[in-house]
Design a binder for these strands. Structure first.
Lengths: 199, 199
DNA sequence: ACTTTTCTAGAACTTTATTCTAGTTTTGAT
DNA sequence: ATCAAAACTAGAATAAAGTTCTAGAAAAGT
């Protein structure tokens, strides 16, 4: 691509690297993909790759942080439009099922837990997580107050609502279950609701 | 240890390697631990290690398969003594919480999903899994029949019952939650039950 | 215009995993 | 008891992969 501003060529290159890496990482895991393959797939030189990402872990981290931001944002978008607890909780689960089913590669990567973040990346993640938690708290607190939801230790809501779906998704993504999360979305949503509703 | 049969010395060596590897793997991940460190920790030679385990992945697989067998066995032990659905389901969750809390290293390793199994190991896992599923089915089917449990697609029961606890455990193991799974065991058990009971 | 920064390139280097050769101990067969 | 085969140990040698380095081109800033 000689007919492009450098800015564009550079960001093109970076995203080629990222998508090549995602494909390889989900196919064979981070450990088993070697940077040579990514380089070849993305048509990128050693120098450029190390200039932009530092090292192999850097690529993995960039993918993870990017995915996390997208994940949190979309989940909140799905949740925040609802006012009542039941549809809100169910919307989270439904969106999750859809996200996993529609972007299996990214989901497999995000759910794989293969990535060991560096200290800086951990810090960045904590910040992202912090603001995500605050948004969640703002939505949940009033519904707990109002008695729509059981009053539990805050940390358990996320696992209770998403845990089953994520676990099911991991199984589907690894090929051990054949029906996609989207096909069991209703069951998961109902179960999630039953596990947190005040009864 | 010169005063031992070779059989004993060998199995001693192998378990030294396995526990050194587990410690390193949970501390830094598989990718970041190098076999040199394991060798040093376990006081083992290069030749011996590769003779017994083939390669680094081989160590990881041995740990995983061993852990899986122990996991399945103990979970079934906790479950099968119960006849009614509610205490059975709750026993699974309670046992899970206890297992994670008492063996955090092994649990962290098993839940990390960092391990990419070789084809042979995958095959072995499928067999273990197969017999595990059969035992589970034998326990669940009559409780579904009898109407104690909702009638759902079989694959969803495991995620529904264990998903939230596993997700919570991952957070605790990674240091992001401070209360151990054992301390939220009752909440998780109740929620799991609510999510699968016929209502 | 020229200085600085960003970016690209690939050869050189380093690190780490794995193989190989050689020798020792044990087991099993005759 | 003797021999042959198999299991095991050891560490040097090798291969494979990740990363650094040097050099130079392109763009941005002054």
């Amino acid at each position: 691509m000689p007919d492009m501003s450098r800015q564009n060529r550079t960001s093109e290159l970076k995203s080629r690297v990222l998508s090549a890496a995602l494909a390889r990482f989900t196919e064979s895991g981070i450990a088993r993909t070697n940077v040579g393959d990514i380089l070849k797939d993305a048509d990128c030189s050693v120098g450029s790759l190390y200039h932009h990402f530092g090292n192999k872990e850097g690529i993995a981290e960039a993918l993870f942080i990017g995915g996390l931001q997208q994940f949190n944002q979309n989940l909140l978008d799905a949740l925040l439009s609802h006012r009542k607890a039941e549809p809100g909780v169910k919307a989270i689960v439904t969106w999750l099922c859809q996200w996993v089913t529609e972007q299996p590669q990214l989901a497999a990567y995000m759910l794989s837990r293969e990535i060991k973040l560096s200290e800086e990346a951990k810090q960045e993640m904590r910040e992202i997580d912090q603001s995500f938690r605050e948004s969640l708290t703002a939505w949940f607190a009033p519904r707990i107050e109002s008695g729509e939801l059981k009053n539990l230790h805050f940390n358990v809501y996320v696992p209770l609502i998403s845990g089953a779906t994520l676990e099911y998704s991991r199984m589907w993504l690894s090929g051990r279950y054949s029906r996609s999360p989207a096909t069991v979305s209703d069951v998961m949503a109902e179960a999630a609701w039953q596990s947190v509703r005040e009864s």
